[in-house]
Protein backbone atom coordinates (compact mmCIF):
# COMPACT_ATOMS: atom_id res chain seq x y z
CA UNK A 1 0.00 0.00 0.00
CA UNK A 2 1.39 3.40 -0.94
CA UNK A 3 1.53 6.10 1.73
CA UNK A 4 -1.34 8.58 1.90
CA UNK A 5 -0.01 12.09 1.41
CA UNK A 6 -1.82 15.31 2.09
CA UNK A 7 -1.92 17.42 -0.99
CA UNK A 8 -0.26 20.78 -0.58
CA UNK A 9 -0.41 22.98 -3.67
CA UNK A 10 -1.57 22.52 -7.24
CA UNK A 11 1.60 22.77 -9.26
CA UNK A 12 1.73 23.99 -12.82
CA UNK A 13 -0.28 21.28 -14.55
CA UNK A 14 1.23 18.40 -16.47
CA UNK A 15 3.95 20.21 -18.35
CA UNK A 16 6.26 20.24 -15.35
CA UNK A 17 5.12 16.98 -13.89
CA UNK A 18 8.46 15.27 -14.23
CA UNK A 19 10.25 18.03 -12.35
CA UNK A 20 7.54 18.79 -9.81
CA UNK A 21 8.87 18.05 -6.32
CA UNK A 22 7.43 14.97 -4.68
CA UNK A 23 6.71 14.81 -0.96
CA UNK A 24 9.36 12.86 0.90
CA UNK A 25 7.02 9.94 1.57
CA UNK A 26 6.32 9.49 -2.12
CA UNK A 27 10.02 9.78 -2.95
CA UNK A 28 10.65 7.02 -0.43
CA UNK A 29 7.87 4.90 -1.92
CA UNK A 30 9.40 5.37 -5.35
CA UNK A 31 12.86 4.45 -4.09
CA UNK A 32 11.46 1.36 -2.35
CA UNK A 33 9.73 0.21 -5.52
CA UNK A 34 12.80 0.85 -7.66
CA UNK A 35 14.95 -1.34 -5.44
CA UNK A 36 13.17 -4.33 -6.94
CA UNK A 37 13.33 -3.08 -10.53
CA UNK A 38 14.82 -5.43 -13.08
CA UNK A 39 15.59 -4.98 -16.75
CA UNK A 40 17.95 -3.10 -19.00
CA UNK A 41 19.29 0.28 -17.87
CA UNK A 42 17.03 2.00 -20.43
CA UNK A 43 13.95 0.17 -19.16
CA UNK A 44 14.80 0.82 -15.52
CA UNK A 45 15.28 4.53 -16.22
CA UNK A 46 12.00 4.62 -18.06
CA UNK A 47 10.14 2.77 -15.32
CA UNK A 48 11.48 5.18 -12.73
CA UNK A 49 10.38 8.19 -14.78
CA UNK A 50 6.93 6.75 -15.44
CA UNK A 51 6.42 5.66 -11.84
CA UNK A 52 7.46 9.08 -10.64
CA UNK A 53 5.06 10.75 -13.07
CA UNK A 54 2.28 8.54 -11.80
CA UNK A 55 2.93 9.49 -8.20
CA UNK A 56 3.29 13.15 -9.15
CA UNK A 57 0.05 13.04 -11.10
CA UNK A 58 -1.78 11.81 -8.03
CA UNK A 59 -0.12 14.57 -6.05
CA UNK A 60 -1.01 17.49 -8.34
CA UNK A 61 -4.54 16.30 -9.03
CA UNK A 62 -7.47 17.41 -6.85
CA UNK A 63 -7.59 15.53 -3.54
CA UNK A 64 -8.72 11.93 -3.97
CA UNK A 65 -8.81 12.17 -7.76
CA UNK A 66 -5.98 9.68 -8.21
CA UNK A 67 -4.39 7.49 -5.56
CA UNK A 68 -1.61 5.05 -6.30
CA UNK A 69 -2.49 2.02 -4.20
CA UNK A 70 0.24 -0.31 -5.41
CA UNK A 71 3.36 0.06 -7.50
CA UNK A 72 5.39 -2.87 -8.82
CA UNK A 73 8.30 -2.25 -11.16
CA UNK A 74 10.03 -5.62 -10.97
CA UNK A 75 9.43 -6.46 -14.65
CA UNK A 76 6.60 -4.53 -16.29
CA UNK A 77 5.42 -1.43 -14.47
CA UNK A 78 2.24 -2.46 -12.68
CA UNK A 79 0.10 -0.15 -10.64
CA UNK A 80 -3.23 -0.31 -8.87
CA UNK A 81 -4.90 3.08 -8.95
CA UNK A 82 -7.99 4.47 -7.33
CA UNK A 83 -9.58 7.12 -9.51
CA UNK A 84 -12.43 9.34 -8.38
CA UNK A 85 -14.44 9.46 -11.59
CA UNK A 86 -18.11 8.92 -12.34
CA UNK A 87 -18.59 5.51 -13.86
CA UNK A 88 -21.64 4.00 -15.51
CA UNK A 89 -22.75 0.52 -14.48
CA UNK A 90 -25.49 -1.83 -15.56
CA UNK A 91 -25.70 -4.50 -12.85
CA UNK A 92 -27.79 -7.53 -13.82
CA UNK A 93 -30.35 -6.80 -11.09
CA UNK A 94 -30.68 -3.07 -11.88
CA UNK A 95 -33.49 -1.89 -14.10
CA UNK A 96 -31.64 1.19 -15.28
CA UNK A 97 -28.22 2.73 -15.54
CA UNK A 98 -26.39 3.32 -12.28
CA UNK A 99 -23.77 6.05 -12.10
CA UNK A 100 -21.31 5.72 -9.24
CA UNK A 101 -18.14 7.50 -8.28
CA UNK A 102 -14.81 5.78 -8.16
CA UNK A 103 -13.02 2.98 -9.94
CA UNK A 104 -10.03 0.83 -9.15
CA UNK A 105 -7.77 0.41 -12.14
CA UNK A 106 -5.01 -2.09 -12.78
CA UNK A 107 -2.40 -0.66 -15.11
CA UNK A 108 0.26 -2.74 -16.82
CA UNK A 109 2.97 -0.89 -18.71
CA UNK A 110 5.16 -3.51 -20.41
CA UNK A 111 8.66 -3.07 -21.78
CA UNK A 112 7.34 -3.93 -25.24
CA UNK A 113 5.79 -0.50 -25.44
CA UNK A 114 9.25 1.01 -25.83
CA UNK A 115 9.73 -0.63 -29.19
CA UNK A 116 6.30 -0.96 -30.74
CA UNK A 117 2.74 0.35 -30.56
CA UNK A 118 0.37 -1.78 -28.53
CA UNK A 119 -3.39 -2.22 -28.73
CA UNK A 120 -5.40 0.27 -26.73
CA UNK A 121 -6.87 -2.47 -24.54
CA UNK A 122 -3.47 -3.77 -23.43
CA UNK A 123 -2.80 -1.35 -20.58
CA UNK A 124 -5.77 -0.87 -18.27
CA UNK A 125 -8.20 -3.22 -16.56
CA UNK A 126 -11.04 -2.07 -14.33
CA UNK A 127 -10.70 -4.06 -11.12
CA UNK A 128 -13.77 -2.53 -9.46
CA UNK A 129 -16.66 -1.93 -9.69
CA UNK A 130 -18.07 -4.73 -11.79
CA UNK A 131 -20.61 -4.41 -14.61
CA UNK A 132 -19.18 -1.17 -16.00
CA UNK A 133 -21.40 -0.17 -18.89
CA UNK A 134 -19.28 1.25 -21.66
CA UNK A 135 -18.60 0.43 -25.27
CA UNK A 136 -14.91 0.63 -24.41
CA UNK A 137 -15.01 -1.86 -21.54
CA UNK A 138 -15.01 -5.61 -22.03
CA UNK A 139 -18.03 -7.49 -20.76
CA UNK A 140 -17.54 -9.92 -17.90
CA UNK A 141 -15.60 -10.15 -14.69
CA UNK A 142 -12.33 -9.13 -16.38
CA UNK A 143 -12.99 -5.65 -17.67
CA UNK A 144 -10.33 -4.47 -20.10
CA UNK A 145 -10.58 -0.78 -20.90
CA UNK A 146 -9.92 0.02 -24.56
CA UNK A 147 -8.30 3.40 -25.09
CA UNK A 148 -8.20 3.24 -28.89
CA UNK A 149 -7.34 0.83 -31.65
CA UNK A 150 -3.63 1.35 -31.16
CA UNK A 151 -1.61 3.46 -28.74
CA UNK A 152 1.66 5.02 -29.89
CA UNK A 153 4.98 3.43 -29.02
CA UNK A 154 6.29 4.54 -25.63
CA UNK A 155 3.11 6.40 -24.73
CA UNK A 156 3.66 7.88 -21.24
CA UNK A 157 1.74 6.36 -18.33
CA UNK A 158 0.31 9.76 -17.42
CA UNK A 159 -1.37 9.88 -20.82
CA UNK A 160 -2.83 6.44 -20.25
CA UNK A 161 -4.27 7.67 -16.95
CA UNK A 162 -5.72 10.79 -18.56
CA UNK A 163 -7.18 8.72 -21.40
CA UNK A 164 -8.74 6.42 -18.81
CA UNK A 165 -10.33 9.45 -17.15
CA UNK A 166 -11.66 10.56 -20.52
CA UNK A 167 -13.02 7.14 -21.40
CA UNK A 168 -14.70 6.45 -18.05
CA UNK A 169 -16.21 9.91 -17.72
CA UNK A 170 -17.18 9.50 -21.38
CA UNK A 171 -15.58 12.79 -22.33
CA UNK A 172 -14.00 10.76 -25.09
CA UNK A 173 -15.74 7.58 -26.08
CA UNK A 174 -16.42 5.43 -29.10
CA UNK A 175 -20.01 4.28 -29.38
CA UNK A 176 -20.23 3.41 -33.05
CA UNK A 177 -20.49 -0.37 -33.30
CA UNK A 178 -19.65 -0.20 -36.99
CA UNK A 179 -16.38 1.66 -36.43
CA UNK A 180 -13.51 -0.34 -37.94
CA UNK A 181 -11.59 0.07 -34.70
CA UNK A 182 -14.31 -1.97 -33.06
CA UNK A 183 -15.80 -1.82 -29.59
CA UNK A 184 -15.56 -4.22 -26.66
CA UNK A 185 -19.24 -4.13 -25.71
CA UNK A 186 -21.53 -3.82 -28.68
CA UNK A 187 -24.72 -3.80 -26.59
CA UNK A 188 -23.42 -0.89 -24.52
CA UNK A 189 -22.37 0.91 -27.70
CA UNK A 190 -25.91 0.64 -29.03
CA UNK A 191 -27.39 1.69 -25.68
CA UNK A 192 -25.21 4.78 -25.45
CA UNK A 193 -25.90 5.59 -29.07
CA UNK A 194 -29.58 5.71 -28.18
CA UNK A 195 -28.91 7.70 -25.01
CA UNK A 196 -26.37 10.18 -26.28
CA UNK A 197 -27.85 12.99 -24.18
CA UNK A 198 -26.40 11.31 -21.08
CA UNK A 199 -22.85 11.70 -22.41
CA UNK A 200 -20.50 12.76 -20.86
CA UNK A 201 -20.93 11.74 -17.25
CA UNK A 202 -18.95 14.82 -16.23
CA UNK A 203 -17.29 17.65 -18.10
CA UNK A 204 -14.73 18.30 -15.40
CA UNK A 205 -11.15 17.95 -16.60
CA UNK A 206 -8.89 15.59 -14.70
CA UNK A 207 -6.89 18.32 -12.99
CA UNK A 208 -9.84 20.45 -11.96
CA UNK A 209 -11.92 19.82 -8.85
CA UNK A 210 -15.62 19.10 -9.35
CA UNK A 211 -17.76 22.17 -8.88
CA UNK A 212 -20.44 22.31 -6.23
Amino acid sequence: MMPMIERTEPRGGLRHLSTAPLPAALERALADAMRGAEGTPTWKRRKRAEARDLLALGHVAPPGRLTVLQLDVRQALRAVLRMDVPVARMPPDADSLVVERGVTLGVIYPEETLSKPLPGAAFVQILAPSDVWSANVAVGPVQALCLGASLPRAIPVKEIVLMSWGALSMQSTMIDPSDPAGVLNIEAARWWHANRERIPLTRTPFLRAEEG
Partner: peptide
Protein backbone atom coordinates in the same frame (compact mmCIF):
# COMPACT_ATOMS: atom_id res chain seq x y z
CA UNK B 1 1.34 1.74 -39.73
CA UNK B 2 0.43 -0.55 -36.85
CA UNK B 3 -3.23 -1.30 -36.35
CA UNK B 4 -5.15 -3.43 -33.91
CA UNK B 5 -8.79 -4.13 -33.60
CA UNK B 6 -10.84 -4.12 -30.40
CA UNK B 7 -13.12 -7.06 -30.58
CA UNK B 8 -14.83 -9.03 -27.88
Amino acid sequence: QTRFRCTP
